[in-house]
Amino acid sequence: MKPCHDGTGERLAEMRTVGVVGLGKMGRPIAGHLLEMGHRVVGVDLDPQAGADLEAAGMQRGAGPDDLVGTDVCLVLVEGRAVARIVLDGGAYRPALKDCLTLVCSTVEPDLMRTLHAAADVAGARLLDAPLCRGDHGARQGDLLALVGGSGTALRECEGVLQAFCSDVVHVGGPGAGQAAKLVNNMLLWSNIASVVEALQLGEALGVRRAAMVEALLPSSARSWVLETWQRPRDLPWAHEDMRMVLEASTEAGLSLPLTGLVHELIKGTRARGVLRDGGFQADGWLMPAYEDEA
């Protein structure tokens, strides 16, 4: 893992007991990596079958977030709207999390993240926002990027845990900064997706096979992560939610982002045409109609 970008290089002792809330496409492989690295893992999910295979590998099953008492680090990997229900209890910081270091790895609004940080401060608890980039493929490979907001000291405490599933960790600033950075990442990602889809559709309409077009673009000035991973199976269902958060944040900041608004509409149109069938990308790539010799 590349060093955390907080300027100190100091590492503290690695934590050994890790709670993972949410054992879905991100949480399940992350919990697996933690077990492989020798950590004790307590897994929590509403679905009692989620991550069931990890119990044979030593994962302890918790019925809910209140079963995380005694953990050193807790990773919250649930859908964004559920994050507050995990971290807060009756509007106050959840007592079961007070003595552990909690990392919100889900993507949530920066304002909500700052509210959670404020609740943690009142309770004397430790909290970091640490949303993850590179999706479920990165989770399976263990090469995620964490964008961390909050205390640099707290980040150094959990470096050993992050090493289990991240190849890159960047400390981007104070409370909420990690979520702000993730919104910027998502804004650029979906803008790139929209432009690449339209560009390849143009190439095909003009008679250039998609595979040949991608091969030609990769060494060009148009190269991008979207092109580099064109054939990678993926599941990215959150386009509309991502863009909604970006637009709301820009409104709160008093910024006009006309291109982002257009991308939001383009993404909705792309979904309607089936390119994002069922809200995600399937094993046949980005689901644009293939030429006969590429089928």
Rank of each mutant, 00 (worst) to 15 (best):
R126V: 14
L128F: 01
L128V: 04
L128W: 04
L128T: 04
P131T: 02
L132R: 02
C133Y: 02
R134D: 10
D136V: 10
D136E: 14
H137M: 06
G138I: 01
R140G: 13
Q141K: 13
Q141I: 09
G142L: 00
D143E: 07
L144M: 10
L144D: 09
L144T: 13
L147T: 01
G149W: 00
G152Y: 00
T153Y: 04
A154G: 09
A154Y: 05
L155E: 04
E157S: 13
E157G: 06
C158Q: 07
G160I: 01
V161I: 05
L162D: 14
Q163S: 12
Q163G: 12
Q163T: 06
A164S: 08
F165I: 08
D168C: 08
V169R: 00
V170S: 09
V170D: 07
G173S: 03
G173R: 03
G174D: 03
G174A: 05
P175Q: 04
P175C: 03
G176Y: 00
G176A: 06
A177M: 04
Q179P: 05
Q179G: 08
Q179T: 02
A180D: 04
A181D: 07
A181T: 03
K182N: 05
K182L: 10
N186A: 07
M187Y: 06
L188T: 09
L188G: 07
L189S: 11
L189Y: 07
W190P: 11
S191E: 09
S191D: 15
N192R: 06
I193A: 11
A194G: 14
A194H: 09
S195A: 14
S195Y: 03
S195I: 14
V196I: 15
E198P: 02
A199M: 11
A199V: 13
A199K: 01
L200W: 06
Q201R: 10
L202S: 09
G203Y: 03
G203D: 15
E204I: 12
E204D: 13
G207S: 10
G207P: 05
V208S: 12
R209W: 10
A212K: 08
V214Q: 08
V214K: 00
V214Y: 09
E215Q: 15
A216L: 10
S221H: 12
S221V: 14
A222Q: 13
R223D: 14
R223T: 11
S224L: 15
S224H: 07
E228R: 14
E228P: 06
T229Q: 15
W230T: 13
